[in-house]
Design a protein around this nucleic acid. Structure first.
Length: 573
RNA sequence: CGGCGUGUAGCGCAGCCUGGUAGCGCACUUCCUUCGGGAGGAAGGGGUCGGAGGUUCGAAUCCUCUCACGCCGACCA
């Protein structure tokens, strides 16, 4: 490709609304442009990368025996009503009405559509297992789109759905997809990890996420120092400490704590460590039928954080989890937030395991401006119901009993689920088994955020000059930069000849024939992140050499011209 | 959804407080010089100042409404 025939839309200045490095570099390198919040146009440069990612995904899915399909982006409401998700999905689903006043949505995912297809097409266990995938545009009306294509509303996703006669078969395919995903991200040259994950809105039993490790990642991941345990922090179990709770050593006292509300303020005021305090959070409760009912107190050690995912799964807690308003709090316990405590609170109390290990603790007195000190479970208030409702922290014991946990950040680029029969049951997706009996199919689903992978790759591979693409997903493999070609017929001819040869050798060359000054060419090619660069000059021709520099090399090197093809082939292999 | 902020040329911004000719840098066009790390000079083109309404002799500037975009938050006991 010649730059004269390819949009090089690089910009020097960083657009003011780009927060993370990948977003800034994608804009500056001329890969994407924003159309509206969470909506991006892919320019030729960006699209080449997107297509490369797509192609690797496609090749590996095909290799794993999955079959490609393409389903509509716009989906009829009826199917979603059948699965029960039309009501469940909430405002993230973009709903549309056609001219006949029929309801549709712009698909945020495709379980309903594939299940509908398969129940009509598959009749026999002999056709199972089967795995279908597509690479297609999704729309999720994110409450806050941000970070460019990393969390966009419209995005490109590879989604696959597998169908099985039983759970054992599902597990086989699930494992195959796990291995396939590992191959995919390895081929892309990314540093990634598979971690245990929550199943979220999609539902089902087991699931794992694939994370690209990067400090800017939105997810926290807990790793064991001693084993291969890794889990999203949403999921990582905070195991109960082995030690018994110490015996009470102090008497309970009421202390005036005027204007001291947060744990930080109270612990500083009373000169005790935050871990010696307990915080009490009020959330909306649920009846046995799951209806909204009353409020529930969640008690945590002062220095711990509530894990909303875990809390939401408690039967007493209303899902989705919502915090009680100040008015609700006053009505329930008679004081303002900042002075709540579990003693004589008069509503159900659920304590985190960690909170139960604290003796002589400090907590709110359920009276404005007052806290209690020297409080002990069992003595001053009944032993509460106990649950794991906090986020693990660095140094916690690993749930598998081996080593302790460290926390790193990651960008979720893939997610695999064992769905079970959630959709097949609701939508009557059955086949006949070998006894001629109708059985509900078991399903798995497997997603990769194709457009997000592009951003994640940049987060992990960049420097102060721009992007450093891994070879496998670079928009071009090689930049060919002749210096002052417009002034030297000899150089022009040499450059054209080399360009032709490289192309004939199947190498993706970006030939910079714009006649720009060297500084401009180099800056652009480095910003764009082309992994390999050849510089041609009259000086080099005189010496019978060309200059080579890898994108992340410290030094350039002069190489004899007659070994150019050989040298480049070596570099690209 | 709540709080805060920002909308002025393709991009980055100033001007607004204190109303009176719409500016700067980058980018773009033409010419000259320059030519191995985002060149210098000269001359140019490009604006419904987000939109609507109001106040005023006069509004980018003041007021009201509205739209868009962004940041933070949705952990506070």
């Amino acid at each position: 490709m010649r730059t004269s025939n390819f949009l090089i839309a690089t910009v020097k200045e960083t657009p003011s609304d780009a927060e993370v490095i990948s977003h800034q570099l994608m804009l500056r390198a001329g890969m994407i442009r924003k159309l509206a919040s969470g909506l991006y146009t892919w320019l030729p440069m960006g699209l080449r990368v997107l297509r490369k990612v797509e192609q690797i995904v496609r090749e590996e899915m095909n290799r794993a025996g999955a079959q490609e399909v393409l389903m509509p982006a716009v989906q009829p409401a009826e199917l979603w009503q059948e699965s029960g998700r039309w009501e469940q999905f909430g405002p993230e689903m973009l709903r549309i009405t056609d001219r006949h006043n029929r309801e549709f949505c712009f698909g945020p995912t495709h379980e309903e559509i594939i299940t509908d297809l398969i129940r009509n097409e598959l009749r026999s266990y002999k056709q199972l297992p089967a795995n279908f995938y597509q690479i297609q545009t999704k729309f999720r009306d994110e409450r806050r789109p941000r970070f460019g294509v990393m969390r966009a509303r419209e995005f490109l996703m590879k989604d696959a759905y597998s169908f099985h006669i039983d759970h054992a078969s599902l597990e086989q395919t699930y494992q195959l997809m796990h291995d396939t995903y590992s191959r995919i991200f390895s081929r892309m040259g990314l540093n990634f990890r598979a971690v245990q994950a929550d199943t979220g809105a999609i539902g089902g039993s087991g699931s794992q996420e694939f994370h690209v490790l990067a400090d800017s990642g939105e997810d926290a991941i807990a790793f064991s120092t001693e084993s291969n345990y890794a889990a999203n922090i949403e999921m990582a179990e905070a195991v109960a400490p082995a030690a018994e709770c110490p015996a009470p050593g102090a008497d309970i006292q009421v202390i005036d704590t005027p204007e001291q509300h947060s744990i930080e303020e109270v612990s500083a005021f009373l000169k005790v460590d935050a871990s010696q305090t307990l915080k009490t959070l009020l959330v909306h409760g649920a009846s046995e039928e799951g209806e909204l009912e009353g409020v529930v107190a969640l008690v945590l050690r002062g220095d711990h954080e509530l894990n909303e995912i875990k809390a939401e799964k408690l039967p007493q807690v209303f899902a989705p989890l919502t915090f009680a308003s100040d008015d609700d709090i006053r009505a329930a316990v008679g004081c303002n937030p900042g002075s709540i405590g579990p003693v004589d609170i008069g509503i159900p109390v659920i304590a985190d395991r960690g909170a139960l290990q604290v003796a002589d603790f400090v907590c709110g007195a359920n009276e404005d401006g007052k806290h209690l000190t020297g409080v002990n479970w069992g003595r001053d208030l009944p032993e509460p119901e106990v649950a794991d409702i906090r986020n693990v922290v660095e140094g916690d014991p690993s749930p598998d009993g081996k080593g302790t946990l460290t926390i790193k950040r990651g960008i979720e680029v893939g997610h695999i689920f064992q769905l079970g029969d959630k959709y097949s049951q609701a939508m009557n997706a059955n086949v006949l088994d070998e006894n001629g009996k109708s059985v509900v199919m078991t399903m798995g689903c497997y997603g990769i955020g194709v457009s997000r992978v592009v951003a994640a790759a940049i987060e992990q591979n960049h420097d102060e000059r721009g992007i450093i693409w891994p070879d496998a997903i670079a928009p071009f493999q090689l930049a060919l930069c002749p210096i002052n070609m417009q002034k030297s017929q000899r150089l022009r001819e040499a450059a054209e000849k080399i360009y032709t040869e490289l192309q004939a050798a199947g190498i993706e060359v970006l030939f910079d024939d714009r006649g720009e000054r060297p500084g401009v060419m180099f800056a652009d090619m480095e910003l764009i992140g082309v992994p390999h660069r050849i510089v041609l000059s009259d000086r080099g021709l005189d010496a019978g050499s060309f200059e080579y520099k890898g994108r992340s090399d410290a030094e350039k090197q002069d190489i004899p011209l007659d070994s150019l093809l050989e040298f480049i082939r070596e570099k690209l292999s």
